[in-house]
């Protein structure tokens, strides 16, 4: 599924966040298996799980979840700190990423000195820190006004065009249309899987139970 731009769409309580937690190796499935790059996530130790989260997955949250009282630069550095990247390299990479999300002038600002859109940009830069194979964004525009949300979406498009796999979760059907592939969830089941722009239907190819295994391999 690399090089994909997915959209998981569903109403509140449909189970999309749970799915996202499992994809992001934040949670272990109560039943069934989840293979990530061929590894069964449910059987991994905390250390290995955190390593996977650190190096191969980038998270973007609805409420930004930046570390308070910590500068934008330090926030972007943090995943690299946990990834034991040398300090010099870490700082130059963090600056590069902040430049990419057009936050060059805000290196030393703390989260409380940033607007919502700016915070989300920093969060995206942070998600990109260790150059993960996949970016998981849980309602990234949910807490933003539509104009700012637009710029954030543009950023994701941009990242995708650079070859990142992106999984977006929203309950905004408008945003869903922009992506290549839309997975619709209801009551914990995938009810449709279609091409966003072309409208091609994937749902006959996958059923909900095989979905994870087939694609992650």
């Amino acid at each position: 599924m690399f090089d994909d731009y997915w959209h998981i769409y569903g109403e509140s309580g449909s189970g999309k966040s749970t799915l996202m937690n499992i994809i992001g190796a934040l949670d272990r499935p109560t039943e069934g298996e989840y293979y990530f790059n061929g590894v069964d996530i449910s059987k991994l130790s905390d250390k290995k799980l955190s390593k996977i989260r650190n190096s191969t997955i980038g998270f973007v949250f609805q409420n930004f979840n930046l570390i308070p009282r910590t500068s934008a630069l330090k926030n972007v550095e943090l995943p690299m700190v946990y990834g034991k990247v040398p300090k010099k390299e870490r700082i130059s990479r963090a600056k590069e990423l902040l430049d990419m999300v057009e936050m060059s002038s805000r290196y030393d600002h703390n989260p409380n000195e940033l607007s919502g859109g700016q915070k989300q940009r920093v969060a995206i830069a942070r998600a990109m820190a260790n150059n993960p194979s996949i970016i998981l964004a849980d309602e990234p525009t949910g807490a933003l006004d539509s104009k700012t949300g637009r710029t954030i979406m543009d950023l994701f498009h941009n990242l995708h065009s650079q070859g990142k796999t992106i999984v977006l979760i929203t309950h905004n059907p408008e945003l869903a249309k922009e992506t290549e592939r839309i997975v619709t969830i209801s009551d914990g089941n995938i009810i449709s899987d279609s091409r966003g722009s072309s409208g091609e239907d994937y749902s006959e190819i996958y059923n909900s139970e095989e979905w994870g295994e087939d694609n992650e391999n």
Partner: peptide, 9 residues
């Protein structure tokens, strides 16, 4: 958040 971005226990 720290754990999500890769902090181990």
């Amino acid at each position: 958040t720290r754990k999500a971005i890769g902090a181990s226990n």
